[in-house]
């Protein structure tokens, strides 16, 4: 099966895709983008979060064949011209990264949240990141990072 899909703005046409292949495996093994992490494969952990046509999803729960003609954005698509995206910068500055495995999914989910709600309160951040598990940080620094990113975006002209 052939899948035609735009990933991070680049058109891909990939042959011999398995019909039951997940978008997660497709991105990691066919497109070679390994920032999207593979952990639970059942939608519990959020480490495989990506955007499909602007909607935040777990890529392990989307079949690759379902994204035919869609636009997918992964964590690799957030930075531009070698500059970290402000959400990525905030995660670095707030010390929100420990082992780093959950970080890509966390950043994609935080990016999704802030695109729709530039100044979320703490409860909203907790709710919107509730599908992303982190076993290192205890979450506080991650919440700090999201608020930092929001503050900086609010302060920007």
């Amino acid at each position: 099966m052939r899948v035609n899909v735009t990933v991070n703005g680049v058109a891909h046409s990939v042959d011999h895709v398995w019909a039951l292949e997940s978008l997660l495996d497709f991105l990691r093994e066919r497109v070679g983008l390994r920032g999207t992490k593979n952990a639970c494969e059942q939608g519990e952990c959020g480490s495989c979060s990506v955007h499909v046509d602007g909607v935040l999803v777990c890529s392990c729960l989307v079949a690759a064949g379902q994204v035919e003609g869609c636009s997918v954005v992964t964590v690799e698509g957030l930075a531009s011209d070698g500059e970290l995206h402000p959400v990525q910068r905030a995660f670095v500055d707030a010390g929100a990264v420990q082992c780093g495995f959950c970080t890509p999914g966390m950043i994609v989910a935080a990016h999704s949240l802030l695109s729709g709600n530039p100044d979320p309160d703490d409860l909203t951040v907790r709710e919107e990141l509730s599908g992303n598990l982190c076993r290192c940080t205890g979450y506080q620094k991650i919440l700090d990072a999201v608020h930092l990113a929001a503050e900086r975006a609010g302060a920007a002209p």
Binding site: A19, L20, S22, E41, Q42, G43, C60, L61, A63, Q66
Partner: peptide, 24 residues
């Protein structure tokens, strides 16, 4: 049949389901 895939893809990922194909 598949739409959101939040049930079916779990079964596929864990090799509990092997449908001959998907009706998206």
């Amino acid at each position: 049949p598949i739409c959101g895939g939040t049930d079916l893809m779990v079964d596929i990922n864990f090799a509990r389901a092997r449908p001959s194909g998907l009706l998206d």
